[in-house]
Every structure is written in structure tokens, then in C-alpha cells.
Nucleic acid binder design. Structure first.
Lengths: 191, 191
DNA sequence: TCTAATAGTATCGTTGCGATACTATTTAAT
DNA sequence: ATTAAATAGTATCGCAACGATACTATTAGA
């Protein structure tokens, strides 16, 4: 079998999706909701927008917009308008949103089975980066590991956006993230 | 971050699903169709049924039945009734089905990015088996690695079903598969 | 022989999804 | 400064995946 790795990935994720439905379905939460909430819990203040969530998950912006509106109306998210750019909206998790992530992502089965594994994570990260590079997707890495990041006293500084960063932002995900070495060219598909 | 492995798995599979839609969507093939076809291409003659596909992917039998009916009507599958048990139906890939699997599963991006990796596959297999054990899912392993399998001249023999196996069946997936060591108890959820 | 269990299908309501079209805001170009 | 283009987001449409439930047909078991 020469697609062994792919087949394993496919099945594991199918089973995990199935488990998430079983566990969170009664609350009306679908896998995509949990993924969006999970991302937003880890996104910095330049990347907590509908746009970014869609790019992160590879889903169309129209679709994402509707999922996020539902999440807001259901009390999992709170939206605030950007004070500089009237077009953009920022999304933050409410207490209910945080609770949902803590409870359902990852699903209980994952924890029970001891799914976390440093070795596996390292391997997955390598594959992910190869996929991101070839596919033209954004990397969404932490500021701390970004080539535009500069350490400053009491926080950091983004050389690309030219703004200072609060300490808590440095470990979060950024849509503008670029690796240290090669600057990967970015494609922004809407579809 | 203590859910690093899960988060990586989640994103990789989200992106791969997205790619599959992009590549196979024009043919009307959704990810679930490709997963079903891929499984059936590797299932032995006791496991090529709607029931088995649903269990393999963790989806309800009603849903699977409808997906499979569509696949048959669209010419990707051929159904034949079981000659012993009038209730069961066997599913086999047509030329068109085989072609679809070869073309779209895995998606081109996976191949381009060099996603296959022995090391990663081995790690994934370990996690999968832990998930299967805890979750009560069937393992669907190859006859060759089953505790009921007995080598015979010109093929093999299944000690559980008490039938001889043709050579080509030995490397295929079986829903009755049990590991050598511990016999895992099976749960059969319908949901 | 009758009852339960099983494999599969039909149908219903809900929701995820891409595509398209639209609004509002910002940026670039003339 | 006015106008055109780009961008972020939403609304709407059609389609299809999904679980739940109810149903049929066949087989196994008491």
C-alpha cells in the first residue's frame, strides 16, 4: 500500500469527527464550530476575523460568515468592530465559547486514548508545512517564531505591521506569519 | 499548548478535505464518496457491504446507504446480492470507481508535498489502534495479521468464518479482524 | 411457529458548503 | 478631489451530508 499515511490520516479524522458529533451534537455544535472556536482561542488580534478563520480551515468566506454568525447568536462568540478599519470585525470567545472548547475539543476519546504524542506532533508539523508551502496556504504560526518579530522590553514588536505587541499576543497565531528562512509566497483563494 | 497533536491533525485533515473538494468537486464527488470508494477498494469479500463502510467511517447506516446508492447510480459502484444471505449486498468498484480513487485519493497536493512517510504512518497507526480500542470501533485489519487467519497452500483459511480465502483476499481489510494478542470487545453503534 | 435480530432502504428536518450577488468601507489612480 | 478598484463582510440560493426514525425483507433463535 503506497497511500498508507494518507489512509490513516483520513480514517483517524473521520472517527474523530464522528466522536465530536456524538459528544457535542446535543449542544448543536458541529465539528466546524469547534474548529472555528479552537482557532479563535489561539489567534492574535490581527487574525481573529471571519476572513482568517476561513483561510485557516480552507473554507469559503461566505460559509464561514454564516457559521460565525450562528456562533455569535448562540452566545459562543462576541463580535466587535475594528476601530481603524470599518470593514473588519473581531471575534472573541465568550465564557460559553471557552467552555465549549475545553469540553469538546479534543473529544473525550482522544484524551482517554492518550492521543497526544510529541513525536507524532513533530512529524505532523513537518507534513503540514510541506502542504502549506505547496498549496499556497497561510502558515498561521506564532509571532514568536516569525521573521517579522522583534523582541522588546515588556512584549514584542511586529516589523511588518509596525506595531508593538502585548506579551500575551506573542504566543498566538498570526495570519501574517512568515517562517524565518524562506518567505513563502501566499495565495489567497476565495472560491 | 497541550493539544498540539490534535490541533495539527484537525487542521491537516481540514485542508485535505478542502483540497479534495476542489479537485473532485467538479465530478460531484464529495470527500465522503472518495473515502467510501477507497475503503471498498481495500475491503475483502466479507466487508464490502454498506454496513461495513458505515462502521469504518463512523457514519450512520442510513446515511451511508444513501451515499452508496448515489455512487451506484452514478456508475462508481456495482451492487450484487449475497448468494447466501438475502439481506446483504456486496459493493464492488467499477472502472469508473477505480479511476476516481486513483485520481482523487489522495488529492494531488498530498502527493506533490510528499505526504507519505513511513515514520509518520507508524505513529498514526499506534494512535489509531488506541482510539479503536477505547472507542469500541472495529479494527478492519488485513486477514494476514488476524488471529483467526491460518496459512494454507494456495491461499489461507479463516478460523472464525470457517472458509477458505483466495490469495487476493489475504491482504484486504476485514470487519471481523482481531489482533493477535488481546481480543478487543466490539461495540456496534448505529446511532 | 412465532419472535427477535439483522441488513438495508426511504423519508424528514437540519445544517454545512460553494457560488453568486450585494453592501459598506478603504485604498489607489487619475 | 473625484472616481475606480480592491477588500471585509453579509445575504441568499441550491445542493448534499448527516442523524433519527420508521419501514421492508430476510434470517436466526426460542
Amino acid at each position: 500500500m503506497m497511500n498508507r499515511t494518507f489512509v490513516l490520516l483520513e480514517r483517524i479524522s473521520a472517527l474523530l469527527r464522528s466522536e465530536q458529533r456524538r459528544e457535542a451534537g446535543s449542544a448543536g455544535l458541529e465539528p466546524v464550530h469547534l474548529q472555528a472556536l479552537g482557532y479563535l482561542a489561539r489567534a492574535n488580534r490581527f487574525s481573529d476575523t471571519p476572513q482568517s478563520v476561513g483561510e485557516y480551515l480552507g473554507l469559503s468566506k461566505g460559509n464561514m460568515s454564516q457559521r460565525l454568525l450562528w456562533l455569535e447568536r448562540s452566545g459562543y462568540l462576541q463580535r466587535t468592530k475594528d476601530e481603524w478599519d470599518g470593514r473588519v470585525v473581531h471575534l472573541g470567545l465568550t465564557g460559553r465559547g471557552l467552555k465549549a472548547v475545553a469540553e469538546f475539543s479534543p473529544p473525550a476519546l482522544w484524551v482517554e486514548a492518550g492521543g497526544e504524542d510529541e513525536n507524532l506532533a513533530a512529524e505532523l508539523e513537518k507534513v503540514l508545512h510541506r502542504l502549506l508551502g505547496r498549496g499556497g496556504y497561510r502558515g498561521f504560526g506564532q509571532c514568536r517564531t516569525c521573521r517579522h518579530h522583534q523582541k522588546r522590553a515588556g512584549g514584542g514588536h511586529c516589523g511588518l505591521l509596525k506595531v508593538d505587541l502585548e506579551p500575551d499576543q506573542i504566543d498566538k497565531l498570526c495570519r501574517e506569519h512568515e517562517m524565518e528562512e524562506e518567505a513563502e509566497r501566499i495565495r489567497t483563494p476565495d472560491r
